[in-house]
Design a protein around this nucleic acid. Sequence first.
DNA 1: TAGATTGTTAATCGATTAACAATC
DNA 2: TAGATTGTTAATCGATTAACAATC
Lengths: 220, 220
Amino acid sequence: MSRAIPEATVARLPVYLRVLNELDHNSQKTVSSARLAELAGVNAAKVRKDLSFLGSYGTRGVGYDVGLLIFQMSRALGLTGERAVIIAGAGHLGQALANHRGFSDRGFDIVAMIDVDPAKIGTKLSGIPVVGPEGVAPLVLANAGCIVVIATPQNVAQEVADAVVAAGAKSLLNFAPVVLTVPDEVNIRSVDLGLELQVLSFYAERDERPRHSDGQQRSA
Amino acid sequence: MSRAIPEATVARLPVYLRVLNELDHNSQKTVSSARLAELAGVNAAKVRKDLSFLGSYGTRGVGYDVGLLIFQMSRALGLTGERAVIIAGAGHLGQALANHRGFSDRGFDIVAMIDVDPAKIGTKLSGIPVVGPEGVAPLVLANAGCIVVIATPQNVAQEVADAVVAAGAKSLLNFAPVVLTVPDEVNIRSVDLGLELQVLSFYAERDERPRHSDGQQRSA
DNA sequence: TAGATTGTTAATCGATTAACAATC
DNA sequence: TAGATTGTTAATCGATTAACAATC
């Protein structure tokens, strides 16, 4: 039985994974916690602590095997198989996400976009088929464990969430700037695209910089 | 001299502000910390603590004046005037951000998009003029305190960041899935659109839900 | 006044990180 | 062996929250 991994650690794993993939791409075989920390913009002790939750995959005096770490981390993140993703909303945001390297590159399989526009239904956008609202339920049923991304206008976001939850979806990623209500057993995460802009505005107004901002990288 | 506001609090202010604007829209004159907490998905004591950093704007036995709180919070966030935003990259993501209510609704003035595509330069997309790369420096100079949003392909993100920093930009919001290096006095925040997807994947894989996830809302 | 709710203190909790023994 | 680096402990730090006096 694996220990519970702290949420703060879970949120950093994708950052490490991105750095590790870059290292692998550059044919780096091993990496030390110090180097990984530098590249990810965090403290070396934190890196070792975080990685220790995955198991003991380092070698003292040597460092971590990049390939092994990528494998173990991908496994922990559930990225080994292709996980189905359904994007609700085929507007600019939906298409941006469909094209996004961070989506398609990382083991996610975007199976469809859903839209109400008759001009889009039945076509492919960015290589992804667009289906009408009636296609939601069959898609969710056919793709067990899928993640539904809500990239619709905010006024229909709740309605769409209700529909996909009714169809059995258990994981939602919401980009609409509204608070969505879902049953307790559904895991929903919200990304507020305007939030970071406001945080930046706060610091710009005061001519300040946060003392240290996790995952926010600065010059080496 | 105002106390330093903890970064965790700063990150929650936009969430409160969104809820307050909704309340205001529904003609709610006052709100208690308990109600605000419920709507924002956090603890009531945390709401009071967070709000106390802005000053004492509540009334014991009554609650907070919605309008006053919106005003004070907007001021703290530097959203009173229109803050100029320049979007680098007029692809789907850039256009999605240009259209995004969370950007334009909240006191941000998107002054231009920058792109290399000759077919787009000189036109308006979503009502925003598109200028070529040579327009960057004059734009940054003309809009002191502006925020530059990087919505370009990842392979040119660093180059673009270097250019806007050289032109004097002090606040960057990066959507490209790469680690950008900027001088120490520049405030950069990165949004990894794929990160939350991986976090969701982690919990889906384990059939778990995070015990409590800040700002992530659930059923009431 | 009685009831409600803030603002703040102080306790708790969890996350970060320095330090170092283990060990390659 | 000597040098390097992990894995983990324990101290530190900061954030959360229960509790309650202040007060509308």
